[in-house]
Amino acid sequence: MSAAPLLSIENLTGGYGEIVIVTDMSLAVAAGEALCVTGRNGVGKSTLVRLVTGALKPASGKVIFEGEDLTFAPAHGRARQGMGYAPQEGVVFDTLSVAENLTLHHSDRSLERYRELFAMFPRLPDRLGQRAGTLSGGEKKILSFCRALAEDTRLVILDEPTEGVQPENIALMAEAINSAKAVGRGFLIVEQNLSLVEAVADHAALMDHGECIYTHSGTVNLRAELSRRLKI
């Protein structure tokens, strides 16, 4: 991993109140790279993400973003500093329109920043006035994905972005991620779909029981190694 990572997670431990779910995790994401975290359901992947985004306060350890210690910064502050986040569940604001979902956090309310993403996912601009709650599950995921990828975020955190999304759109997501990496943006992606992992990951981490049990760099043998360990 590179010397000055965009995001570094150091010995992070935490969970919900007294219940510790993530134990002593250390990971880093470099600019222009994607780190994919995988593992079976319930091993603490989403908890890890919530600790990084600030929805949960860690018991110990650090979250450092662009050299700044954000361990106890509020969630909205991290977003303002350039972390985009698409959660696994509750991905959109159902009662708001698609356009409002994409613009409410930008005071200029401009959709210009979504131009390239709209070109990839043309169903989205077609439905700007529609209430987000009326979209299908896959469409909501794409909406959430686009919002997190909007151009001014430097680190994008995606929690199971492909859940319920059709394969052709998963391919488009990978394409979008790779072109964002090309301009120096980093990704922390929690994903079980190994096709996406294989398409975008520079590094991969495998979690079990709240701990990191295996890391893999590069794409060589990535799928085979991960699949083998996931089956155990």
Binding site: P87, G90, D94, T95, T103, L104
Partner: peptide, 24 residues
């Protein structure tokens, strides 16, 4: 926009914070 942010906060406070809205 403030109206939209309030609605967002009411409906999904965690997500609202995650997109940068100071919910407090």
């Amino acid at each position: 926009n403030t109206g939209a942010r309030i609605k967002a906060m009411v409906q999904n406070p965690d997500l609202a914070a995650a997109v940068g809205i100071n919910t407090a």
